[in-house]
């Protein structure tokens, strides 16, 4: 089968920064891939290119064997078919929630696809139940808690049942309960045929939620492999600013053989 995405020497720069600096990678259909990197390493920019919101300055991105270019997206039919199959959940739910009610928010994408009213209603209902937000249906999204907003944002993308899901830091800034809800979703997508690409700097979730990882540093892929392999290379992770480069001993003499996350108090 063709890979979902195939990137070849992709570059993207904002005025002064090379945000993505020569990335080549291949993502196979049905895999759960983690893009690991510290803040500013280029994860969000890369996801926006995978969602055809930005196009590379140079290099190519192929989606199921076809190049993603601004020219081709002039065509409505192609654009709608791509938007239907690929969904991006933004890191900041505030930019994603612009409708007056949760219902309108979740119905937005199916309506833009031009689906029939009955189908829109049925799909919205399903997505609301799936994300356990049925009772929020008539509330304005921007008045919800962080965890609720995240679930609405997820529902507003899952409602199309896309083949490819792009998630930008889905567990960042969530309370522990909402966080474990999102992680359960990610774990549940294993083996469903969905391709899930998650950008994160949270090493603690990677092992359970991904089949393959790419480590980004300053816009470049510095390492890739299975989570076990990537997480065991502490030196590299330290270079990519994903872990602190010091050794420490835990109370009780617990020794960790792999990098892990725990609270630091630098004050």
């Amino acid at each position: 089968m063709k890979p979902v995405f195939e990137l070849n020497e992709v570059h993207y720069r904002y005025d002064q920064v090379a945000a993505v600096d020569g990335v080549s990678l291949q993502i196979e259909t049905g895999t759960r891939v983690a893009l690991l990197g510290a803040n500013g390493s280029g994860k969000s920019t890369l996801l926006r290119m995978l969602d055809a919101l930005y196009f590379p300055d140079s290099g190519t991105i192929q989606f199921q064997g076809e190049a993603l270019t601004a020219d081709r997206f002039e065509d409505d039919a192609l654009a709608f078919s791509f938007r239907r199959r690929v969904g991006l959940v933004f890191q900041n739910p505030d930019v994603q929630l612009f409708n007056p009610t949760v219902f309108d928010e979740v119905a937005f994408a199916p309506l833009q696809m031009g689906w029939k009213k009955d189908e829109v209603l049925a799909r919205v209902d399903l997505a609301l139940r799936q994300m356990e937000i049925v009772e929020l249906r008539n509330r304005p999204p921007h008045r919800l808690s962080g965890g609720e907003k995240k679930r609405v944002a997820l529902a507003s993308v899952l409602v199309l049942d896309p083949e490819v899901l792009l998630l930008d830091e889905p567990t960042a800034a969530l309370d522990p309960r909402s966080q474990s809800q999102v992680i359960d979703l990610l774990i549940g997508w294993a083996g469903t045929g969905k391709t899930v690409i998650t950008a994160t700097h949270d090493l603690s979730v990677v092992e359970d939620t991904s089949d393959y990882c790419y480590v980004l540093n300053r816009g470049k892929v510095v390492s890739h492999g299975t989570p076990g392999l990537v997480l065991s290379n502490t030196q590299l992770l330290a270079q990519a600013n994903l872990i602190h480069g010091h050794r420490h001993v835990h109370p009780g003499g617990v020794a960790h053989s792999h990098p892990h996350v725990h609270p630091h108090n630098h004050d």
Binding site: L53, D76, F80, L88, V95, Q112
Partner: peptide, 22 residues
């Protein structure tokens, strides 16, 4: 920056300039 991002988020969900209503 914010409104640019919002516009991207709308596009990502199929917005092509016309708002379609129920």
């Amino acid at each position: 920056q914010l409104s640019g991002d919002v516009h991207l988020a709308m596009q990502s969900r199929g917005f092509r300039g016309e708002v379609r209503l129920l």
